[in-house]
């Protein structure tokens, strides 16, 4: 039986390292295999992947398409099983509940088109057992934060792609998550909208401060947003590099430091990807 994701105290090697507060997300030598369609042959989607996200950090996971990044997020979210290793999630220190609340922003908005914007947010509030009297203020607050105040009664199909993705972000934030998982949330948007959304995300997150694991294939996006970057490769699907990003905030996408780090990381990426040929 493959183990399920648990929210107990951390079991990984980082736990005993003198840290009083367990990391929000601790993934330790996680391995996940898929059976090939012809049966028998196994395809390793994640090969002994380890990473740590401390409470309140913004951590990016960067890698080429198909390297298992989304699978890792799904395992952390608890909707996919894994074969070996461990995943431990911790609620913020000083909170009675053991289970951290998880918000998830997908690549596409994944809104319920038959519900209004407000009802879409209420769906997750109901799912997370958040008391009904609080709904109205939570919906208003987080729609306002993503710049969609006044759109409560509109239907998703009347909104542009960028606005739909904002609704999806508001939905994830409305449950006031401890952990926010984001899976290439801006990759379906045009460059200008995506850029604006990145700025807004930084802005929004200054107030709500969840722990974030952000998956992307865009290195400049990762450098601009993150405190730490994990770089992943395919065949084998492993993390090969962990880079702390010590560029002071607030950052601008045109900062020379961001460009420099991006250049270094891109060079490293290509050397790793070419080495495997």
């Amino acid at each position: 039986m493959p183990p399920e994701t648990t929210a107990q105290a951390v079991l990984g090697p980082t736990a005993g390292a003198g840290a009083a507060v367990p990391p929000a997300i601790a993934v330790n030598t996680l391995t996940k295999r898929f059976l090939a369609p012809d049966g028998g042959y196994e395809f390793t989607v994640l090969d002994r992947v380890s990473l740590t996200v401390e409470e309140g950090q913004f951590v990016s996971l960067v890698g080429p398409s198909g390297c298992g990044k989304s699978t890792l997020l799904n395992i952390i979210a608890g909707i996919e099983r894994y074969d070996e290793g461990s995943v431990a999630l911790a609620a913020p220190s000083g909170r009675a509940e053991a289970e951290p609340r998880i918000g998830y922003v997908f690549q596409s908005p994944r809104l319920l088109n038959w519900l209004t914007v407000q009802q879409n947010l209420e769906f997750v509030l109901e799912a997370q057992d958040i008391p009904r009297p609080r709904w109205r203020s939570l919906v208003a607050e987080y729609l306002d934060r993503v710049g969609l105040g006044g759109q409560e009664r509109n239907y998703p199909l009347n909104l542009s792609g960028g606005m739909q993705q904002r609704v999806a972000i508001a939905r994830a934030l409305a449950i006031e998550p401890d952990i926010l998982l984001m899976d290439e949330p801006f990759s379906h948007l045009d460059a200008i909208t995506a850029r604006k959304m990145r700025f807004d995300l930084v802005e929004i997150l200054q107030r709500a401060k969840p722990t974030i694991l952000f998956v992307t294939h865009d290195l400049s996006e990762a450098v601009f947003l993150s405190d730490h970057i994990y770089m992943m490769r395919t065949k084998p699907a492993r993390i090969f590099r962990h880079v702390p990003v010590d560029i002071p905030r607030p950052r601008k996408p045109e900062d020379a430091m961001i460009f420099d780090l991006e250049k270094v990381l891109i060079r490293e990426f290509f050397s790793v990807l070419e080495a495997k040929e």
Partner: peptide, 12 residues
């Protein structure tokens, strides 16, 4: 995708 979304948010 939508069913997965529901599961992520723990809808019963």
């Amino acid at each position: 995708d939508l069913i997965e979304m529901g599961r992520v948010y723990k809808a019963d």
